[in-house]
Design a binder for these strands. Structure first.
Lengths: 161, 161
DNA sequence: ACCTATTGACAACTAAATTGTCATAACATA
DNA sequence: TATGTTATGACAATTTAGTTGTCAATAGGT
């Protein structure tokens, strides 16, 4: 198992970068998508169903860092808008499987296509390899920050004065 | 000037990573700091004043991706809590220079120290170099996503059918 | 002296979530 | 098969972290 190292001293700037980028991306999403699908949560759910066709609400929620109840309200809104629909779940009567409708599929395709087009116009002085490595690092950090890990670390710190 | 490349296709996963990590970090901050200084904005302002002693509110705001008005309210709250104070600004009568009080300095020191201790306990299988590179990449991406760049990219896309 | 930009204060609003509660349904097991 | 536990959907109340807009006063440039 990997050991903690002094590398963690470098976490501060990374965290700052994540926060800054998060806000910039939020603002960018509004600019890019106008009033159609501005919400990151809606986009996230559509994307999740685009990648994995049939999922229950709790399954969608489990894969993202937000509460089940919140995903439920997002899915309900998408149902109202006709972008997703319920289908019978052989394993469960109350918990339907959710999937994209034709119009939902169109929507997420348009979103992704527009994003890709605009990203390609951004002055980004980075190559694929750098982005991939950075993403991998981010995911490793995310792993380290899973609630159980954080709680365990806090317990260790607080138990020794 | 750097050209856009197909690297931008790798932006999607990176963006997802940023969002996920942002939420995890938010949750972690609550766990780490309990009810003392849970808010990222308060912490950010304290940190900003810790790094650069005397700043006006607009100066603090300019360095972060949030509105001047919001930083103003955060600073006002910190004033109420006695963590920062106003000092005369030789260059401007209305716009005071803000600086940490002794108690504010203690607060941010404690925050940083506790964070460092807990980070050091996290199972993070990464070395300093990786984190530094990743941070640099994030900052480059943040640069690319500055509102003017995004708007310019949108204009280019929308002008060609 | 005049015009414009900046600042602090305040208000109203919004997005994106959280927590808590409830009734019902599913599941495990004795 | 009854029974306690967990999962689910629905709903409500609340919270956080911002936003935008407006105003009066003040600075700063020409």
């Amino acid at each position: 198992m990997p050991e903690a190292t002094s590398a963690n001293a470098e976490l501060g700037p990374l965290i700052d970068g994540v926060r800054t980028l998060f806000h910039l991306l939020k603002a960018a999403a509004e600019r890019v998508h106008g009033d159609g699908e501005r919400s990151a949560a809606r986009r996230g759910v559509l994307l999740s169903l685009h990648e994995k066709e049939l999922q229950t609400v709790p399954q969608i929620a489990a894969a993202r860092p937000v509460s089940r109840q919140h995903i439920q309200t997002v899915v309900n809104a998408l149902l109202d808008d006709g972008l997703v629909e319920r289908t019978a779940n052989p394993d469960h009567q109350r918990s339907h499987l959710i999937r994209l409708t034709a119009s939902g599929r169109d929507r997420i395709r348009m979103i992704l296509q527009r994003e890709a087009a605009i990203f390609a116009e951004l002055p980004l002085p980075l190559d694929t390899e750098q982005l991939r490595r950075s993403t991998a690092t981010l995911n490793a950090v995310a792993q380290a920050f899973h609630p159980e890990n954080v709680d365990a670390a806090i317990r260790r710190i607080d138990s020794k004065p």
